[in-house]
């Protein structure tokens, strides 16, 4: 009882402290400055965050665009096409992949992927590299939750469909996937909150220049990356602005995970 209260209070303490630290930025320069200042030069009190917000949006969406089709396809593989042993082994592989530390993904990105992507006029540390690394990191989330959702589709439904003469692809694509859509969507929203919040791997491959992501080969800096790079030397006003952006990230994550729960419907208990 007490323990449950403390665990719950943890969330509110986190929110409270973020608000407390962000308060100066939210009141005196004001939120609108994040949109209207001419640039991000925190040392001379210019706090335009839109390029970094756009970079966060671009990396997150890009990663989802790559990871969702592959993840869902691999879930169809596990449920409908894989021999039992291969399906089990593949699921184990996904669990291992989900456990790999983000710095290891980042290091691989930096040492292997970035040199591969380097080309004329850019070093390979850019938006596309960040998208690729992020996509790999969220793949297990998408694939495992889609596989779980497909597994939860009642066998009787699939057998009935097959008895009506539907072929295996029709059963998979027209019966099973639609029946599992809520679970799959919830998994995608969880993956979204993961991609939104990932920091170290992105910092290692994104190039970290504050600018609008108007091309795939442009170095970008995400909101999370900015926190990791700047909190260490931030003065009071700057620190407060950074906490304000942390608060916004937290809100975004809270919204996406709450949506995931709503979409998923009541968990069976």
């Amino acid at each position: 009882m007490t323990a449950a209260a403390i665990s719950t209070v943890t969330l509110f303490v986190v929110v409270l402290f973020l608000i407390r630290e962000a308060f100066p930025a939210l009141t005196s320069p004001g939120l609108h400055r994040f949109l209207t200042d001419e640039s991000w030069h925190p040392l001379s009190n210019r706090f335009r965050m839109t390029p970094m917000a756009a970079a966060t949006a671009a990396t997150t969406l890009g990663a989802l665009v790559l990871a969702v089709p592959v993840g869902v396809a691999s879930a169809v593989f596990v449920r409908f096409y894989a021999p039992a042993a291969a399906g089990r082994a593949f699921r184990g592989l996904l669990e291992l992949m989900a456990g790999i530390p983000s710095v290891v993904f980042g290091l691989w990105g930096l040492l292997v992927l970035v040199p591969l992507l380097a080309g004329h006029g850019h070093s390979g540390q850019h938006l596309l590299a960040a998208i690729c690394v992020l996509a790999l990191m969220i793949l297990p989330v998408v694939a495992l939750s889609a596989a779980a959702a497909l597994n939860a589709v009642p066998e009787s439904l699939l057998v009935a469909a097959a008895a009506l003469g539907l072929s295996r692809p029709s059963v998979a694509l027209r019966i099973a996937l639609p029946a599992a859509r809520r679970g799959i969507a919830a998994g995608i929203l969880l993956a979204l909150s993961r991609a939104l919040g990932e920091t170290m791997a992105v910092v290692m491959v994104a190039g970290n220049v504050v600018q609008f992501p108007d091309s795939l080969t442009r170095p970008v800096r995400t909101l999370t990356g900015n926190l990791a790079l700047e909190l260490g030397y931030a003065g009071p006003a700057h620190r407060s602005v950074l906490f304000a952006s942390a608060l916004m990230l937290m809100l975004a994550a809270a919204v996406s995970v709450s949506l995931a729960r709503v979409v998923e419907g009541r968990p069976d208990e």
Binding site: A4, S7, T8, T10, L11, F12, V14, F17, L18, R20, E21, L190, S193, L196, G197, E198, T199, T224, L227, A228, L231, L242, F243, A246, L249, M250, A253, A254, S256, V257, S258, R261
Partner: peptide, 22 residues
Amino acid sequence: VRWSLDVLAAVPSIVFGLFGNA
């Protein structure tokens, strides 16, 4: 309690870093 744990699980780790620092 469940909802707050779900949200807590989704909070970006760098945000925990800032919170812990403060």
